[in-house]
């Protein structure tokens, strides 16, 4: 048990907090769900409290809320264009959810739900399916033309089309895998070095400095991965809206 507790992977363990069963289905409220709730509450209260007074000249919190709004809005405008405005609330929620999940994971003894493949894959799958549906809705069967890039000779079709389909289906996998791998690797590494600090006692100063540096890098990665996840969503959406 003690060894289990100190394993660098122990932080990723799911522990049910409130057991909940629906027939054969396990719907327990776990530590993962708890941190999702915390992230949701934090994101919502940050944006709602910061804009409570609707000051014309913003305070520190309000300008942070405005910056995050404009950050995502610019991302959509640059990558999707005017048509992307419709999807702004979804993309903004996605960005906030991933960002707060990543940042919450930086707190010691907390849980990082973005380091769970099923969570990142579910989000990527929603993006993937949503984008595909949008593409078919907008272009009808013509949307399938992306499987055959312009300028490829027709006899190549039997080879190119399956490859393109496979390539299309790798999107949600690489999207979710990227976030999952980054968060898992970063947090495992932090935990390992933190373990060294405890193990080495007085001589733990060196790994301690390393942990401090790694923590700084992890903060950047936490933000960067949220950014990458969101921007790839924008790129996919753009592909579906504007066929090449």
């Amino acid at each position: 048990m003690a060894a289990e507790e100190h394993s660098p992977l122990a932080q990723f363990e799911i522990k049910p907090l409130v057991s909940l069963r629906l027939g054969d289905l396990d719907l327990s409220y776990t530590n993962s769900a708890l941190f999702m709730t915390i992230a949701m509450v934090l994101a919502a209260s940050f944006l709602l409290l910061a804009t409570r007074r609707s000051a014309l000249v913003p305070g520190r919190w309000q300008s942070m809320a405005e910056i995050s709004y404009e950050f995502v809005a610019n991302m959509i405008r640059d990558n999707v264009g005017q048509e992307g405005r419709k999807y702004f609330p979804f993309i903004f929620s996605l960005f906030m959810f991933v960002l707060f999940g990543n940042l919450l994971g930086m707190i010691p003894y907390s849980f990082t739900y973005t380091s769970h493949i099923i969570v990142t894959f579910a989000m990527a799958a929603v993006v993937f399916i949503g984008v595909t549906v949008i593409g078919f809705k907008k272009h009808g069967l013509h949307f399938l033309s992306f499987l055959m890039p312009a300028g490829v000779p027709i006899f190549m079709a039997p080879l190119i089309v399956p490859i393109e389909i496979l390539s299309y289906f790798t999107r949600p996998v690489s999207l979710s895998l990227r976030l999952f791998a980054n968060m898992t690797a970063g947090h495992t590494m932090l935990k390992v070095f933190a373990g060294f600090v405890a193990l080495l006692g007085v001589f733990g100063v060196v790994p301690l400095l390393l942990v401090a540096a790694l923590t700084g890098m992890e903060l950047i990665i936490a933000f960067l991965q949220a950014y990458v996840f969101t921007i790839l969503t924008c790129v996919y959406l753009n592909d579906a809206l504007h066929l090449h």
């Binding site: 890039p149 312009a150 080879l159 496979l166 299309y168 790798t170 592909d239």
Partner: peptide, 26 residues
């Protein structure tokens, strides 16, 4: 599908490396 997957993987790598990003087409 091993070969098709290899093709798709290389295609993805080509797209990322040439700066085409994740977009469809070349």
């Amino acid at each position: 599908f091993f070969f098709l997957g290899a093709g798709a993987g290389m295609l993805n790598v080509y797209r990322v490396a040439t700066g085409a990003g994740q977009s469809i087409g070349y």
